[in-house]
């Protein structure tokens, strides 16, 4: 039950993009068509789950015992950058198909702030390992949902007859605003 609440709250109520404002850059940058958006989302689900496990272990078995919790930001970003590289290499060897699908998005992920954000949030919320994993999955699925929905709207938006200064980013931002308003309707679900 507790895990179900975490999942629902991270996907809908506190959606990482539309309510917490993390990962706005890929949200605006990689959402011009639905298939790339879904590809990016899948890569985020994969990396976020792995990196949250890694940083959780680093925090509890290295940083805290050594009393150097202030090194959090430096070590986390290194772990994430390292992990993205390793995932890329392993994926290329083990599953070329998956690599073809996700490969181009992997380098972009290091600077995707949802990854570092979730890794830090897990520590701030005092989650245990299982809760952290569920939290990471929920948030990354929430990211994928937001970016996929958004890209399908933007595809339609291209056909709309807008004044020149509203085209592109301004129209996208206003659409995001309406989407975010719609997600506010989920408040109070749990």
């Amino acid at each position: 039950m507790e895990y179900l609440i975490i999942i629902i709250s991270t996907i809908f109520i506190n959606n990482i993009v539309l309510a917490k404002f993390l990962g706005i850059c890929p949200f605006l940058g990689v959402s011009k068509n639905t298939s790339t958006a879904v590809g990016m989302g899948a890569a985020v689900v994969f990396v976020m789950t792995l990196s949250t496990i890694m940083t959780y272990l680093v925090q509890h078995y290295i940083l805290l015992p050594l009393g150097i919790a202030y090194m959090q930001t430096v070590t986390y970003i290194l772990v994430i950058a390292f992990l993205v590289q390793v995932v890329e290499i392993i994926l290329k060897k083990v599953s070329p198909d998956l690599y073809q699908a996700l490969g181009v998005y992997l380098p972009l992920i290091t600077t995707n702030c949802t990854i570092l954000g979730v890794a830090i949030l897990v520590i701030q919320n005092n989650f245990n390992l299982l809760q952290s994993v569920v939290f990471a999955i929920g948030n990354s699925v929430g990211f994928t949902l937001a970016i996929a929905l958004f890209s399908s709207i933007r595809e339609q938006l291209d056909n709309a007859d807008l004044p020149e200064y509203m085209q592109g980013i301004p129209a996208a931002l206003i659409t995001a605003s309406i989407l975010s308003m719609a997600f506010m309707g989920f408040a109070g679900l749990v």
Binding site: L18, Y165, P170, L173, I174, A176, S177, S180, M184
Partner: peptide, 15 residues
């Protein structure tokens, strides 16, 4: 709230 952030930035950029 969250929607206000998106819409304000959208209108600033449009301007």
């Amino acid at each position: 709230l969250a929607p206000g952030a998106f819409i304000t930035l959208g209108f600033i950029i449009a301007t």
